[in-house]
Simulated assay, not measured.
Amino acid sequence: MADMRALDVETHSIPFFQRYGSAARMLHWSVACLVLITWPLGMMIGFAKKDVVSAFYLLHESFGFMVLWLMLLRVGNRWLTKPPQHSGSRPEKFAASVVHGGLYLALIIMPVSGFLATNAHGFPLKWFGLFEVWSPIGKTPDIAWTLSAIHTWSAWILLTLLALHLGAVLMHHVVRKDETLYRIL
């Protein structure tokens, strides 16, 4: 294992201590993969045939619920471990902090509002069809559409923040050719 770390440091010329910890990296990529599954599933619900809509909802909600729990673990990990310093100017560091904070916020608000909206519309979450998840609100039609709107808006905000995040990754990796990307790999 030590040899792999040395190779990693030599290959990317970034000291091991300047990388995110293994838990942070694992959580980052797990959430990223789940978002890349969950977001399109949610978008496809409106286009799916009626006989498969419930399957799309089941998968979308179940993966979204996993995003919520992984994000809560990410927040806990962030509180317990110090992330490596960002390189760049003060405005770049500020922009990175705002985008990362916005991503964290959107990735918590979106699954919470989706979960509550589904429940408020009268449909309990059945996680991958295995068991029903307890609902703190139950069927509440008065707030269902508000929660759905929050869920939809947070999805578009998330997409915007993700585009900014990926744009910054490309700028660092392709244009500046610096080591920023390797910190999270």
Results as ranks from 00 to 15, higher is better:
V99K: 00
S148P: 02
T140Q: 15
L41R: 01
M44G: 07
L159S: 15
F63Q: 02
R25Y: 06
F17L: 09
G21I: 05
V75H: 06
K139Y: 14
A149W: 12
G167E: 06
T38H: 02
P40G: 07
A144G: 09
M26H: 01
D3N: 13
K49S: 04
W39H: 04
S62P: 03
G114L: 12
S97E: 13
T11Q: 09
W29H: 14
L116Y: 07
D3V: 10
V98W: 07
L41P: 00
G46A: 03
A144D: 10
G102S: 01
T152I: 14
L58T: 14
A144L: 08
I143F: 14
A120T: 09
D51H: 11
W134V: 13
V175Y: 12
P124F: 03
A144P: 11
T146D: 08
K49T: 02
Y104H: 08
P91I: 04
T180L: 13
A106K: 07
H86M: 09
V112D: 03
K82V: 12
L166G: 06
G46M: 04
S97W: 12
V98Q: 04
P136N: 08
L164A: 15
K50S: 12
A155E: 13
M71W: 05
A24C: 03
L159K: 04
G46C: 09
M71S: 15
F65N: 01
G21M: 00
E61P: 00
L166Q: 02
D3Y: 08
L70G: 06
F63C: 14
M71Q: 11
L164C: 15
I137M: 08
T38C: 13
L27S: 11
D178W: 07
H151D: 13
V53T: 12
F56S: 02
R183Y: 01
G88Y: 12
P141E: 07
R5A: 15
C33A: 15
G64K: 05
M171V: 07
L105H: 06
P15N: 11
T11P: 00
T146P: 00
I45Q: 04
H60D: 08
F65G: 03
E10Q: 15
A120I: 10
R176S: 08
T81V: 13
M71D: 10
A95T: 05
M26P: 00
R19C: 05
F131A: 15
A32I: 09
L181A: 11
N119M: 03
I45W: 05
M110L: 14
Y20M: 02
V31D: 05
F128P: 01
S135H: 04
S135D: 11
V169E: 08
L181G: 10
G167A: 13
A117M: 06
E61R: 14
H28D: 11
G101S: 07
I157W: 12
H173V: 03
L185H: 03
L116H: 09
H165V: 00
V35N: 03
V9L: 04
W29C: 10
L185D: 00
C33E: 00
F94V: 15
F115E: 04
S154H: 12
S113L: 08
E10A: 14
L166S: 06
A23H: 02
R25E: 10
N119I: 03
L70E: 02
G76F: 07
T146E: 07
V52S: 08
L170R: 02
S30E: 02
W127G: 01
H28Y: 10
M110F: 08
L72Q: 06
E92W: 08
Y182L: 05
L158K: 07
